[in-house]
Structures are given as C-alpha cells and as structure tokens.
Amino acid sequence: MNATSQKRGGNLWLSAAVWGFAIVMIYPLLWLLSSSLKHTTEVYSQAHKLIPAHFYWENYVSGFKGFAGHSFFLFFQNSLYVTIFSVVGTVIASTMAAYAFARIRFPGSAFWFACMMLTLMLPSEVLIIPQYMLFNKLNWINTFWPLIVPSFAGGAFFIFLLVQFMRGIPVELDESARIDGCGRFLFFAKIMLPLIVPAIVTTAVFKFIWTWDDYFAPLLYLNSAEMATVSLAIKSMADPTMETNWGALFAMSVLSLVPVVAVFIAFQRYIVEGISTTGLKG
C-alpha cells in the first residue's frame, strides 16, 4: 500500500537521523578511547581523526606508572576497597531498615519512616562541615573510614526503594512462616532476602557507580597520594601546573570507566528499570 510504504520511507529517514545523532552524542567517548591509543603529540595535532595513525599501546604502560611514585594499580585498589565496602554496608543496613519499615509494626515506625523520607530531600551540603569536624575529631582524616562508615547506615533512597519492593511481596508468606515457627530474623534471612534480590541488585549497582565516580568525599578526606582513589588520581595527573602526558592520562581514564561500563553491561535491566520506575539518577 502506498500509505504504508510512504510511512516506511519516513521511518527510514527518521531511523537514520536518530542513529546519526546517537553517534554525535557518543563521539566524545569514542574520542577518549581513540586518544588513549595515540601518541601524546598526535592527540592534539590529529584531534579530529578517530583512528590513530599508530596504535600506541605504550600509553597504558606509562599510565600505570601513576604519579608521585605510586603505581596506578594502587589507586584502583583504593577505589575498589572503598567501593566494595560501601556497597556491602549500604546493602546490609538498607535491607534491614527496609524490612522493619515494610513488615514490622513497632512503636515509632511511622515517625522514623517520616524522618527517613525527610532526609531524602536534604542537600548533603548542610551536613558536610559537622561531619568533617566529627571525622577530624576521630582522627579519620586521610583514612578510608569517612568514605566507608556512613554507608553502613544505609541510604534513604535505597531504603525507600526496598520498602516499595517488599510491599509487593504477599504478607500471607509472613503469616504462614510464623505459624510454622519461623522467627523474624530467620524469615528475613531465609525467605525475604532471596525474594528481593532484584531490588538488592539495583541498590548495589547504583551505590557502586556513585561511589566509584565520587569526587567530593575523596577530595575532602584523602590528602596524600598513596590514599588517592582513581577519581583523585586522574584529577591530579591532569594538573594544569604540571606537564601532562595526555596519552597516558587518557589510557587511565579509559580504564577507570571499565568497571562502570562492565556493571552497566551486566546489569543493564536493573539500571534502566531503577531509573525509569523510581527516578534514581544514573
């Protein structure tokens, strides 16, 4: 039919335009990848070319030399350490609190739930100075503690997400488990946890990405090179007062994005659903 073929033609043009624009959008990321394989002199003299004249893998070797005498391995190790403990802490504390709010009717639960919802709206900037003073008093400056310990209190956004998810699980399950003599803690560990795995994965994935990318907290609390996370290390290597080996810096930049991309590829469904159903910012 004429109308449909016309529509098909229109769609083809449209598809081409949408694909073309997508390429423009990810071009900067491709440029980063390509620059990481160019010799430093070529990065800027041939900045418009996406395929390097020679694939200069040495960037990845010299990048790993890091700075201030510390290998980049150390910065990855630091980031990994902080991120893994933060994720574990957030998941444990958030699922516990969410279970109490979703399933246990205890005196004060409504009040504390309201408090939690209020902290959702609170800009963290209001908390920074007293938190800094606290960690300073504890002698925790230039340690990983300030980056990890607050995670073990859970996160309001994640608790909310988990509560919503648990409300979708039939209450009859709790009752029949109780009749069978299953206590609260056993029920939580053996029955609830396996059922809420999707929400736990969403929590872990977002916490991972946010912590891995975080710049503010490391900037505030870590002030020596051997404690630097990947974020801090990349910023330090790009210091405008030093002569920067851009090829090496781009190589490390690419590697720093690998964990985030890997998590995205592995858990894409959770990320997309997490954002579109709860508005978690990605």
């Binding site: 444990i92 504390a93 958030s94 516990m96 609190a97 279970y99 109490a100 709010f101 246990i104 009717r105 205890f106 005196p107 004060g108 639960s109 504390w112 408090c115 939690m116 902290t119 609170l122 209001v126 908390l127 920074i128 100075i129 007293p130 938190q131 606290l134 607050p150 073990f152 209190a153 859970g154 608790i159 609260r184 803690f185 939580f188």
Partner: peptide, 22 residues
C-alpha cells in the same frame, strides 16, 4: 525489639551523620 534491632544501623547513622550535623 525486632523493629528497633532491624533499623538500628540506620537509626544510629541518622543521629550521627544527619541529625547532629544538621
């Protein structure tokens, strides 16, 4: 007891990292 046991880590964090600082 069960309820407060489960929210304890979060509640402690609320006081130390949010309420006191604000």
């Amino acid at each position: 007891y069960a309820g407060y046991a489960f929210i304890f880590p979060w509640l402690l964090g609320l006081f130390v990292f949010s309420l006191f600082p604000i």
